[in-house]
Amino acid sequence: MNKKKGYSIQEVIEYRKLNWFHSNDFIYLKEVPINFESFWIQPEYCCFAIIHSGKVVIENETGGLETAEKGSFILFKPSSTYKILEILPGTTGAGILFNRNFLVSFSEDVFYLLHNSFINTLSAHVIGLQAADYSKLTVLFAQVFELLTTLTPHQWNYSAKGLFLTLVNETDGILQHYKSNRLFANAEEQQLISSFLHLSSVHFIQHREVAFYAGKLHISVGHLHRTIKKVLNTTPINILHKSVLQEAKQLLAFSNKNISEIADMLQFGSVHSFSKFFKKHTGVSPSHYVNAD
Rank of each mutant, 00 (worst) to 15 (best):
A292W: 09
L147R: 07
N19D: 14
D293I: 13
A68K: 08
V244I: 13
T92R: 05
L75C: 08
S285K: 02
L65Q: 02
S117P: 12
V244S: 03
V271N: 01
Q267Y: 04
T152G: 07
R100M: 14
T150K: 08
L113Q: 11
I237K: 15
V202F: 08
Y28F: 14
T235L: 15
W20A: 11
A160N: 03
G93F: 04
A49S: 04
L251Y: 00
E44C: 03
L163Y: 10
K229Y: 15
F212R: 01
K179L: 15
L88D: 03
V168P: 09
N233E: 15
K3G: 01
K280G: 06
F118W: 14
N24T: 09
Q250E: 09
F26S: 06
F277R: 01
Y82F: 13
G283K: 04
S285L: 07
L29Q: 09
E247A: 09
F145T: 10
T149F: 03
Y28C: 07
W156H: 01
V231N: 10
I87V: 15
L147E: 10
H223L: 15
A131V: 08
N157V: 10
V56G: 05
H281C: 09
T121S: 11
A131Y: 09
P33H: 01
K4F: 12
K279M: 06
F111N: 11
F277P: 00
A248H: 00
K55F: 01
N258V: 04
R226M: 13
V32H: 02
G222Y: 15
F21M: 12
H22F: 14
L183V: 06
K30F: 09
V210E: 07
D109A: 15
A211W: 01
N256W: 07
L148M: 12
F212H: 02
F36R: 00
V202K: 05
Y45C: 06
L192H: 08
